[in-house]
Structures are given as structure tokens and as C-alpha cells.
Nucleic acid binder design. Structure first.
Lengths: 334, 334
DNA sequence: GCACAAACCTAGAACGTTCTAAGCCGCCGA
DNA sequence: TCGGCGGCTTAGAACGTTCTAGGTTTGTGC
């Protein structure tokens, strides 16, 4: 199609069908108020001309856009699951999504700024780094829901996983299997690192294992796990919980290379249920976030705000669940 | 923000600054034709009121939208790299991107349909499954660029990686190391499977290794690789090229578990340079697609079409490159 | 003091929809 | 016969911008 060619509009269809533009509009929106005969005639004309309504003109006129803006990171695998869930939930509620991604070369601030020009009625953010202050400013203008980030800012709604509870589940599982000497490999400055560490410590205390608490420095990458596992080897516990799956993959490999059997000599639990954990030869026991629940709640909350319904609680916390695979078992010498 | 609250418009800013809307428009677009004094006054007013131009109204009025529509799969890690590159390339060319994702619950057809209402000037598709016929229909209406899919349809531009050449490079590398008995594990019905297999066969022939050609059935998943590797063990070659990294991970694990040393006893080459390949303990030699080149070319082609410039060749093929890591080496007994 | 240009500014139309209000038509009940 | 009603249809305004064309001011050269 050359640039000069005009796209077909309501007026073209109206002319072709021999009716007014208003009537065509009624038919295209499937609204009541057109005779079956004219309805058929208009639809035929629209089909013949390949007419597509212009969303921008449509939104410009009507006061509601029924559009939710979503900011997500294009490199993050879990964000893919979340966007999937958001599309589903929004579709069910009769809303549409408009996406804006942040990438290594396009930061969250730009991604958000771009969305603000788009007339959406609320924002759903999978934000890592936008400052609390900016999020608060944003929320002062329009309903703002932040996903998976424990943030406290006025007017900002937060939907997140209960990361502490995730580690409670991991530790409970290990204790049930008979473990007592359970270490934790930390996530350093990563987003949920503190909550997971706290969860580990709480659970150990609850089981009367305060004396066994052992937190090793780590990080989110697989070589962080590798390094931490080497530290571990000087005096191996019977089980270890790891900040995330990626790091756990490094841990697993190091343990096995040094001759330890997993889970025979040592059990390992990851976090995220990422694609690595599902590789058949890794088959990692891990804590899974409930993407479906997170997204349903986020969309629900956004719509409640848009439609002015009362909501209770700025923050909603979703429990994760443990996925038991092949890297945990009873200890040989408990 | 309650629904009743109107967003601030040009007119509000104009009133606040005591000038006409036309002048505010000029200032906001950074167009020539406003005095420095007024420019400052308008910007101050806009800032104070938190004014954001309404992209929809803006696009409605101006004939050019400078918008490229992108359809991508939210579950595919490589699509993340591609979207990153597209944002960069579009930004450099003064265009914007509007994204529409396909997910398990929202197929490509819907993703494309949604974009068509968005006034973009061209479409860039990372499509797996949209039929050739539908792509041709689409391309009849507006410039359409398909990425990473070897398709032949009238008016559709294709930018893709030279998968045959990728396997040439893999085989050449192995032959240079001294290998002769090189097998290939196939990708079954996956998209580029046939091209990669053909590349393997061609390269083997070119090196006079026709007698050594050995293609094993496989697939894109890690357990496909596991199964294929078991077949391999009855009579192990000294090297194997694998359809993709995921499958190669399964191969690696099976080989090692059965006591073979990689790369001592057998070398392994994957395809994609995915995150799995980069895990330190996998550290897989693999063929990398050049996301940057693919995206630069796709954006360039889209814009050439939009602006009516002549282009040569419907299809552009980008060479991949081999990333040598730890899973290839000289054979012990060549 | 005047013509002219340059620089700045603005009124009003236009973009493609939806919405409101009103018009037309045939039919019913009185 | 007439008023009124209900179903269908339409004219025209409105949405928030950009664009065109013209208007006003200021400055400059004679």
C-alpha cells in the first residue's frame, strides 16, 4: 500500500451501503437500533471494502477507553507468564491491554511515559526500578497497580507473592523429610531477596532450628550459586534453599561435580519454577508463584479503581506453592 | 483519579498560559514558530498542569503516524531480544513501536487484528503459525515484514537467519578440530528444522564425509534430546550437532550420565545461544542468530516500504555466527 | 512616514469516530 | 380524523489534536 492511499472509513462504508455514517457506526458496534436488512447491507459493504474501525478515532470520541496499560520487561521469562494472564483476565472483564516494554536500551520511565499518552484508564506495572516517588506521582493521576514488588507508596496498589511464605513452605517440606541442617543461599540486592531470607529464618525458628540457621552470600545468577556452593562444601548441610532457580542450577552443578549426590547427600530447593527448573535433567524442587492469581487480582483491582468501587487494603498478597520434583528427599544421616 | 475527572488538554494549557491552542501545539511539538518567552510560559504551564499530549487525537489529525506494529510471542525468550532490537532501531529512525503479543490464550490472528485498528504504517511479525494466505492478504493492505520464518507469499517481506549456513559453520568448526564422525539430531516439525538438517547434510558432503552422514530423529525439547542421545550411545560418533540448545541440554546430560566426557569423548553444538547455553556449567558451543542485524533490517525494510523507496529482493538472509564455548574440542581418536 | 518583510500568533477546519436530539413513518386507540 | 407511540434513521456536534491561511506586530530601508 502506498502512503497516498487513504484507509477506508465509516463514510466510505456508509456511501457504499447508501446509509448514514451514524447507522454504520451502530452496526459496527453491534448496538441496537438498526433494521436487520440495513444491518446486513452495511456488514456486506464493510466486508467488501475491508473496513477496519479506527481505534484512535473511536477512543477519542467516547469517554471510556476500556484500555489497561501494562509495563513489562521483555527479557524476563516470568513476565511472559504474567502478560499471558493479564490478557486473559482483561479479556474476560471486557477490557483491552496496551503493552509497553522496557529493555536494556529503554528504561521503565520511558516505557511508562509512552503509555501515558495512550489514554488507558489504569496502569499495571511489572516494575523493578521505577522510584517510589515517581510511582506515587503516577498513582496520584490514575489508578496504578504494581505487581510483584513490595512497595509502600500512597495510592499505589500492590499485588505480590508472599515470598516469606514461599520459604516457609520450602523449609517445612525439608523438615518433614527429616532435615535439620538447612542452609540458605541469599539473593544479595535482588528485589525479593530480603523477604525470602526473612522467611527462611522465621521458618527455622518456628521449627526450633535457630542454632542451625546459616545464610550464605549469593546472588541471582548461576555463577553466584556456583560460588556459594563452594563455600557450602567446607561443611555441607543436608539441605539448602536457594534464592532462585538460576542460582540453584549453579549450586546443583557444583555439588554434583564435587561428588555429592542430590538428593541423596543434599537436597536443593529453588525459587520461581522457571524453565530451567523444568528441564528433565535438572528437575528442581522449587517454589512457584501463582501467575494466574496475581494477574486476576491485578486486573480486578485496576477495574475496581476505574469504576470507583471501594476496595480494602492497598496490598494483596498471594500465596505461592511448592513444586516438588527430583532434588529433595530424606537425608541419609539426619 | 475518579472517572469523572477530565484529563488536561491543550485547551487547558492554552488558557493557563494565556495563548491559543495552536501555539501550545507548536511548543509541545517543538516546532519552529514560537517566541522564547511564550515557549517558556507554555512549558511551565504544561508542567504545572501535568499535561500529556493525547497520542490518539494527535494521530487522528496528522496523516503520518510513524508507528510500527509488532506482533510477538510473549513466551519465547528470543522474541525478547528481537523486541529489544526493534525498539532501538525504530527509535533511531524516529518511529515508535506498538506491541501486540500472542499467548497460549490469544492467537496470532487476534494479535494482528488488534494491531490493524491502531493506525500503524507497517507490520513486523514474529509469526509462527499465521497462514501464508492470511499473510498475503495482510501484505496487500499494508507493508508487512515477517521475521525468522522462511515464507514465500506475494508482497510479504522476509528477514531471516540463514539456518543452513549456521549448520555449515557448526560442521566446519568440528571438522577443523579433526572430527569426521559427526551426527545431527533433528528438530522434527519445528520451524527451521528442515533448513538446519539440509545445512548439516550439505556441509558433510562438502567435506567429503557423505558416508558419515547420520541424522537422528529428535525435537525441540530437552527430553527429545535425551531420547536421541540414548540412540546415539549404541555407536557414539565423536561429535553431534543438535537442532537447538534446549534439546542439546538433554543430550549433554545423557552423555555425561552415561560416563562420556564432553568434549573429551564427544563434542556437542547447539543452536540459538539461549540462556541455557550461557549457564556456566552448561557453557554450550552454539550458533547465534544476530538479533541486531535482523531487527535493523526489518525496521529498515518496513520504513522503505512506507516511504515508497525501491527495495531489492523480497527476502533478506542474515548470516548467524558460531559461539565457541566449552562443549567442543579435538576428538581423542579421530 | 511609508512600504515591505519577517516573526509571531490565532481562528477555524479537519481527522474518523460516537453521541444526542430530533425527524420520519406507519399503526393503534379513541 | 387525530394524537401519540415505537421503531428506524439521520444531521450535526463533540472529542483533542494538527494544519492552513490569514492576521498582527515589529523592524528595516528608503
Amino acid at each position: 500500500m502506498r502512503t497516498g492511499q487513504r484507509r477506508t472509513t465509516l463514510a466510505d462504508v456508509a456511501a457504499a451501503a447508501g446509509v448514514s455514517t451514524a447507522l454504520v457506526s451502530i452496526v459496527m458496534r453491534d448496538a441496537p437500533g438498526a433494521s436487520p436488512a440495513n444491518r446486513a447491507r452495511v456488514l456486506a459493504a464493510a466486508e467488501r471494502l475491508g473496513y477496519r474501525p479506527d481505534r484512535r478515532a473511536r477512543l477519542l470520541r467516547s469517554d471510556r477507553s476500556r484500555l489497561l496499560g501494562v509495563v513489562f520487561g521483555v527479557q524476563d521469562a516470568f513476565h511472559g507468564d504474567v502478560v499471558t494472564g493479564l490478557y486473559d483476565a482483561a479479556g474476560r472483564a471486557g477490557y483491552e491491554l496496551t503493552l509497553s516494554a522496557f529493555t536494556p536500551g529503554r528504561d521503565e520511565h520511558r516505557a511508562i511515559g509512552s503509555l501515558l499518552q495512550d489514554r488507558c484508564e489504569a496502569l499495571i506495572l511489572l516494575s523493578h526500578s521505577e522510584s517510589v516517588r515517581e510511582l506515587a506521582d503516577l498513582a496520584a493521576r490514575m489508578p496504578t497497580v504494581v505487581l510483584m514488588r513490595p512497595i509502600r507508596a500512597p495510592a499505589v496498589d500492590v499485588i505480590r507473592t508472599d515470598d516469606r511464605r514461599g520459604l516457609h513452605q520450602a523449609v517445612d517440606h525439608l523438615v518433614e523429610l527429616g532435615h535439620r541442617r538447612i542452609a540458605h543461599i541469599d539473593g544479595a540486592r535482588a528485589l525479593s531477596s530480603a523477604a525470602r531470607r526473612r522467611g527462611y529464618i522465621e521458618a527455622m525458628r518456628r521449627h526450633g532450628l535457630e542454632a542451625e540457621i546459616r545464610v550464605l552470600p549469593g546472588g541471582p545468577r548461576d555463577d553466584d550459586g556456583t560460588a556459594a556452593a563452594r563455600d557450602l562444601l567446607t561443611d555441607p548441610p543436608t539441605a539448602v534453599t536457594v534464592f532462585n532457580d538460576r542460582s540453584a542450577a549453579g549450586v546443583l552443578d557444583t555439588l554434583r561435580r564435587s561428588g555429592l549426590d542430590v538428593p541423596g547427600d543434599i537436597s536443593v530447593v529453588g525459587y520461581d519454577d522457571s524453565s530451567i527448573a523444568r528441564l528433565r535433567h535438572v528437575w528442581l524442587t522449587t517454589v512457584a508463584q501463582d501467575a494466574g492469581a496475581l494477574t486476576d487480582l491485578a486486573v480486578q483491582r485496576a477495574i475496581d479503581r476505574i469504576e470507583g468501587r471501594p476496595v480494602q487494603g492497598r496490598e494483596v498478597v498471594v500465596p505461592p506453592h511448592l513444586v516438588v520434583r527430583g532434588t529433595t528427599g530424606a537425608p541419609r544421616r539426619p
